[in-house]
Design a protein around this nucleic acid. Structure first.
Length: 118
RNA sequence: UGAGUUGACUAGACAAUCGCUGCUUUAUCGUUGUAUUUAUUCUUGUUAAUAAAUAGACAGAUAAAGGGGAGGAAAGUCCGGGCUUCACAGAGCAGAGUGCCAGAUAACGUCUGGGCGGCGCAAGCCGACGACAAGUGCAGCAGAGAGAAGACCGCCGAUGACUACUUUUUAAGUAGUACAGGUAAGGGUGAAAGGGUGCGGUAAGAGCGCACCGGAUGGCUGGUAACAGUUCAUUGCAGGGUAAACUCCACUCGAAGCAAGACCAAAUAGGGUUCCAUCACUCUUUGAAGUGAAUACGUGGCUCGCGUAGGAACCGGGUAGGUUGCUUGAGCCUUAAAGCGAUUUAAGGCCUAGACGAAUGAUUGUCGCUUCUUUUUUAGAAGACACAGAACCCGGCUUAUCGGUCAACUCAUUAA
RNA sequence: GCUCUCGUGGUGAAAUGGAUAUCACGUGGACCUCCGGAGUCUAAGUUGCAGGUUCAAUUCCUGCCGAGAGCG
């Protein structure tokens, strides 16, 4: 079933959720992202962010990254396995434009899907 | 037309698709338990219990529709206030802050008007702008001297001393020495050297005296005041700088913050009360008795060690979590009145974000803007389209900022 | 949300408002040596930035910028 919804069910809400992901993650890297994933027992994937103020200085930039990644997650979530994801940003990401960020995050989705099949 | 000053406003526009989050309405589900009706039960009640239906209410869930959804600085957290909790008889000390005068305000370190000083041709802008004559400190180097000072060069050497000469020889005069000494004009040092100019005066000089200018003190006049003026009087005149040095004077300040605070409250652990159970001991009472858990049981051949010591009900605190505080407010817009103005008052209208691992977005198209290329009027390409993202709420200040619009004023040039 | 501290050669630290800003380590250059080490000499500071007070500011005051810490 294809859904484009993104509500509170699709997010990591409490520190406990994050701790679980950070404890035994599988890592995926690109030039400006680190993604930690871990299987959950639900029937849908969940998304969380950990973007440090040290890496991305301005609040406008942090919000932009979160919105872009969230939008991409929203449109691709039906293809993803049932995992919890934590997106971490690396410094320098605020220099990129919207298209570049979109391409990078979509590349990561493909890697996750590929790994799941194997 | 050009150059500038001040104030106010604006912060790309429209459409489509897919989302996020409050609000309103409707529908469905759910929850609680209120009212009514009906049925059943029996202790037969105007009253109880149970069940169902209908109506109403509502923490909530889902769906649909409608409508709303970042800023002028939301930022820095530099001030002030509301709100909340705690503390508190009153007063003082300490500490911190402010500092020309008057006003505005809920309050302010903010704003308005005025004074004084500085900058600018001007419109205008800037200023921590109380007191050093209450006391204490500080001023390197240079310089003679750095605080009620001082003699290095210079000037003088009247007076005193010494030498020489002359004379009327216990004395006087003249010349010299630069010894005592005088001097604050000139030079020089320094950021700063104890009013300025001129004339008189003098051995040379000096407010030493005088004239003018400037000041100080008192009075008078104007002003609410800061302060200004003064053809008034007195005073030769000043002991300068520094308080963003200690300090003094005047005024202000209780402390902490929405993670404040209020309510609901799981699991686990733990507290209290009652009842039941286990074991040991006690008894004029042999009991659902009293006291205790130091004991008992298990593991084990024994010691050490390890494990177990219960069950039920109720009460209170309270963690995770949830709800609330949470957006109607010193609110915004328009008009009128008062005031030079900040602002205030009155009338009418409006409701304009409330998220919480944290929404307010993405993509596409058309137009606009900027830059670049080609070229001379188009075409093409690029663009997080300036700075920047609410977190209890307001009033300011400060800092960042591509452009655009409007109004008032100033200066220059040209024309009439 | 509240509070505090720091910023000085490449690094780590000194300096009462007063001379050309000092010390250690490191780096570059020169000397010494056959070469290297050691040694000797020497160079490199916008005292974070912008204003102000003062005769004079690393020091005092104000505003920014950056780094770090603490409390809840």
């Amino acid at each position: 079933m294809v859904t484009y919804q993104y509500n509170r069910e699709s997010r990591l809400l409490t520190p406990d959720h994050f701790k679980v992901v950070f404890s035994k993650p599988i890592r995926f890297h690109s030039q400006h992202f680190t993604v930690l994933i871990r299987h959950n027992n639900l029937d849908h994937p969940r998304l969380g962010f950990a973007i440090a103020k040290k890496r991305v200085k301005h609040a406008v930039q942090r919000n932009r990254i979160k919105r872009l990644v969230r939008e991409s997650f929203r449109l691709n979530q039906h293809n993803l396995p049932t995992v919890d994801l934590v997106i971490m940003a690396k410094s320098g990401i605020d220099q990129l434009d919207n298209q570049a960020i979109k391409q990078q995050i979509e590349k990561i989705w493909r890697k996750i899907i590929q790994r799941q099949k194997n």
